[in-house]
Amino acid sequence: CHSECLGNCSQPDDPTKCVACRNFYLDGRCVETCPPPYYHFQDWRCVNFSFCQDLHHKCKNSRRQGCHQYVIHNNKCIPECPSGYTMNSSNLLCTPCLGPCPKVCHLLEGEKTIDSVTSAQELRGCTVINGSLIINIRGGNNLAAELEANLGLIEEISGYLKIRRSYALVSLSFFRKLRLIRGETLEIGNYSFYALDNQNLRQLWDWSKHNLTITQGKLFFHYNPKLCLSEIHKMEEVSGTKGRQERNDIALKTNGDQASCENELLKFSYIRTSFDKILLRWEPYWPPDFRDLLGFMLFYKEAPYQNVTEFDGQDACGSNSWTVVDIDPPLRSNDPKSQNHPGWLMRGLKPWTQYAIFVKTLVTFSDERRTYGAKSDIIYVQTDATNPSVPLDPISVSNSSSQIILKWKPPSDPNGNITHYLVFWERQAEDSELFELDYCLKGLKLPSRTWSPPFESEDSQKHNQSEYEDSAGECCSCPKTDSQILKELEESSFRKTFEDYLHNVVFVPRKT
C-alpha cells in the first residue's frame, strides 16, 4: 500500500485506493498535508475557505447554543480562536489581540433580562453583547459592586439597553466600559436606550469621564423622579442622539420631579488639616426662599486615587461607600458681607490618608415646582503625618564578641513616609551569675543571650482551647457569634421535631 494509506488498500502504491488515510483526505486521495488554498479540518480532512465560511455563517444565523462559528488559524479551520487571539470578521482569520481579548457573548432569543446578581454573573467577562440587555433589578445585597464585577467589562451592545423598574439602582456607572450601543435591534418605538419607572436612579454616568455613542435609535425617559433633566440632556449631547427624540420621548413632568437638581456650584473657602482632623468651610448658599434650606450634607471617604465619582458603590438597598454628615444651616444675616460661612470639623480620621470630599445642599421643593440647590466639586484632601507606631517583631542576635545583629519589621501604621529608623542602645553591667558559677561542674549549661522565638506554653494553649472559665478566673470563653447562636437554635429545633416524629412513629394507638 501507499505510504499515506492506513489499515489496508485495494490497489498497491495508489493513494486513492486506501481504506483510511494516515494524515489527511483531499478529493478522494490521501495526502501528507493540505496544500494551499485548503485548510486542515478536524485533523483528517482538507477543506477550502468557502466550506469553513459556510459553517461560520450557519452557526451565526441559527443562534443555536453550542454550535461553533468556525475560524481560520495556522492553516486550520477550527471552532474558535485560541487564547490571546480574536477573529477578523472580513476573512475569519485569528489575529493577536492588542491588550485583553474581546469576548463576544451571543444571547438566546436576542435579549437577556438581568433581574438578579445570579443572572448578571452569566455575563461575567463579556466585552461584546450580541443582542439586547434588559435591566430589571428590584433589590439585593452589595448590588453596585456585584454588577460592576460582572457587567463592568461590557464595551458594546449590538441591540438596545433597557432599564425598567430597577428600584435598587442609583447610577449606571457599573457599566464602566460601555462605549457603544449599535441599535441594530430596537425596542418598540425605535428606541435604543429605554429608561422607565426607576424610582431611585439619580445618575446615568459621570459624563466628564465617560463617552457613549448610540449609532441608531432614540432615547426614552419616563417616570424617573430623581433623575434630573440636565442629566438626560447631557446624554443626548454626548451620545449623538440630540435631535432624534420626539416631543413625548422625554417626559418633562415625570423626570426629576422629586430630585434636588443642583444648578449652582458650592466653593470651599477654608481648608485646614491635622493628622486626624480636617476643618472645612464653604461659601454660604440661600435659595430664593431661605426657609427652603434644610441644611447641608457632607460626604467623605478614603480615596487612594483621584478618580472618585459621587455615586460609586451606591445602591438604593443601603450600600453606600460614603460617610454622610448632616449639618444645620448657619444663622442668616441681613448683611451679605457678614454672612457666616458654614463648615464642619471632621474628626477621627487616619493620618497621612487622602480623602475625597464634597458637600451639597438639602432643600425642600418650592411652590413653583422649581428645584434649587448647590453642590461642590469633589475635592481631595490629605491629612498630615504623625509619629508612626512601633516597629514590629524586633530580633537581636550576637554573632561574635563585638557585634549584635538587630532586625525588625516595619510598623503596622507608618502614618507617613518613613525615611529612617533611630536605634538606641545602652551598655549593661555583666551578670554576677557568670562569676559565681563553678565551671568545672559536669552538665553545666552556660547562660545564653542568643534570641529564641517566643512560644506559647501548654497552660496558655489549654486556656485558649477551654470553653469555660478556669477556677483562677484568668480566662473566659469568647462570646458566641450570631451565626453560632442561630445554628444552635436550628439544631435544637431539629432535635425537638425529630423526637416528636419518633414518638408518633414508635407509639401507635392500640386498636379498641
Rank of each mutant, 00 (worst) to 15 (best):
Q216L: 10
D315M: 07
G256W: 02
I250D: 14
G373Y: 03
V104L: 09
E184Q: 15
K267F: 09
F221G: 03
T309Q: 12
T127G: 06
I327Y: 04
N141Q: 07
I378R: 03
E122S: 15
H341V: 07
R272W: 13
S239V: 14
S192V: 08
K177Q: 07
L147P: 01
L108V: 15
G217P: 01
L186G: 10
V390S: 05
S376N: 01
Q258C: 08
I379S: 06
F268A: 01
D335K: 12
E246P: 13
G183F: 03
T353S: 12
T273C: 14
T309V: 13
P336S: 07
L229D: 04
F268Y: 04
A149R: 04
G139P: 01
T215R: 12
L280R: 00
A385F: 06
D328S: 08
T361K: 01
K226E: 10
C261Q: 02
G243T: 10
T273M: 10
S166N: 04
N248M: 09
K407R: 11
W282T: 02
K267T: 09
L331T: 13
D257T: 00
I181K: 00
D257C: 13
I154R: 00
E122F: 03
G152V: 02
E237V: 06
W344E: 05
G159E: 01
S239T: 06
S319L: 13
R202L: 04
L178K: 00
L349K: 01
H106C: 09
N190H: 08
L279P: 00
P410V: 06
G131M: 01
T118E: 10
L201R: 00
A303T: 11
S171W: 02
L143G: 13
R124Q: 04
F193R: 00
F290N: 14
F175Y: 02
E262V: 05
F220Y: 05
I188T: 13
L298E: 00
L133V: 11
D335G: 03
A195H: 02
D335R: 11
L204T: 08
I271R: 01
K360M: 04
T353A: 13
L186Q: 05
G243Q: 09
T113Q: 15
Q403L: 07
W322K: 00
T309H: 10
S321P: 03
I327P: 02
S260R: 12
S239P: 01
G189L: 14
M346F: 04
Y300E: 00
I405A: 05
P225G: 11
G140A: 15
K350L: 11
L294E: 08
Y160K: 13
K350W: 02
D393W: 15
W207V: 05
T127F: 13
M346S: 03
R179E: 10
W207K: 03
V359I: 09
I154C: 03
G313I: 14
I250V: 05
N320W: 15
G256S: 06
N320H: 10
K267V: 12
D335L: 05
S132A: 06
N142V: 05
K103V: 10
R291M: 10
I278H: 00
E148S: 06
K234N: 14
S376D: 00
G131R: 00
L265A: 04
P391L: 07
I379T: 15
L331H: 09
M297R: 01
K267I: 15
L186V: 05
W344M: 02
Q339P: 09
V381R: 14
A144L: 09
K242T: 05
D292H: 15
L196R: 09
E302Q: 11
I250P: 09
F296T: 01
A149D: 10
D326N: 15
K253N: 07
M346P: 00
A385P: 11
I137G: 13
K177T: 13
S338C: 04
P342H: 13
N255V: 03
D206Y: 04
L293P: 07
Q382A: 15
P336T: 09
S173I: 08
E156T: 08
Y355R: 00
Y160S: 11
L266F: 06
R370Y: 08
S173K: 13
Y160G: 04
